[in-house]
Design a protein around this nucleic acid. Sequence first.
DNA 1: ATCTGCGGTTCGTCAAGACGAACGACCGGT
DNA 2: ACCGGTCGTTCGTCTTGACGAACCGCAGAT
Lengths: 183, 183
Amino acid sequence: MAGAPLEVIAHSLRRERERVGLSLSELAKRAGIAKSTLSQLESASGNPSVETLWALSVALDVPFSRLVEPARPRVQIIRAGDGPTVASERAHWVATLLASCPPSARRDLYLISAEPGRAKQSEPHMPGVIEHVVVCSGRARVGLTEEPVEVGPGDYVAYPGDVEHVFEALEPGTVAVMVSEHW
Amino acid sequence: MAGAPLEVIAHSLRRERERVGLSLSELAKRAGIAKSTLSQLESASGNPSVETLWALSVALDVPFSRLVEPARPRVQIIRAGDGPTVASERAHWVATLLASCPPSARRDLYLISAEPGRAKQSEPHMPGVIEHVVVCSGRARVGLTEEPVEVGPGDYVAYPGDVEHVFEALEPGTVAVMVSEHW
DNA sequence: ATCTGCGGTTCGTCAAGACGAACGACCGGT
DNA sequence: ACCGGTCGTTCGTCTTGACGAACCGCAGAT
């Protein structure tokens, strides 16, 4: 999470406003707030109320949270085999981090390669996490430890990651894409 | 986007606080705000300033935006072939919606099957969109129309979706997972 | 039954945000 | 040059959020 929320908001507001091509006065009018207020907000000398920010997000037609999060980058490729990986000690599975939260988003994207053998048991992590898995090839037993599901190519599973869960390859060369949302 | 932000915040605050198991007084103390303030917020009779909300999100150790967004569900499977799909007129590609924004999140998850033929040209959609693609099988030319990239199994590409972009299968039976983030 | 500690709400006070008017700067038309 | 229009900032006023003390309710201990 960024350090100073008010600075972030100030920048976000100006950025979004200019993107839409509205003048400060015009935006203030549409949002139903005083332009003086908006002026102060964009110069980071203010501590807006939720309602004020909300009005602005509506007027700008952007999700509310867009105003409280920093900016972001562009194109990117990671070839199969490249990229930062994490592997278990016994190398039954390898996860490649494709896209980590930039810089304070709420999902990580992994490519998982696994071989049959001991299952990958995961302790529950941060509350509110949801994991999405799509199998590319092979077969796997995935999901909550108490009620795993067997899936094959093209199958999709989602489950809460804040309780114990598993990923166990059932065939050699099992590959899957995983999205981990942390909200 | 939900209707009444203050109601949502009120519920979020109570929900998160109880999840962590803190009393109202205790949380207020840790966040450095008056417990009366927190009390009013949880009863939706208030219009908190950003700083106040920020202090609470820090004390609760949850991302800020968690407090301004509604709640969410549990486990889910979509078998290969199932699920709502969208296809092009000439059926060169089929997209299956695996996980749509629940209810106002910021990403959609698709499974894409495509056959060689005319490329899937996409008009730029909502500004701020980023698309992530991981190829499961086959080969494809993906990315910005001006500079597409050729990718194969296991390859990953991400690109801004708010400018013209393509997805063109180069081999029969090309399958890919796509995450579309709308922020 | 009484006391003490902690849960949450209500109320009066004060500081801070939101407002609107006024201001200087800039631009295009006459 | 002058005028009307807009753009963004500054300033004084009034509304409103945040604070803290007082308050009610409920356990558990004495």
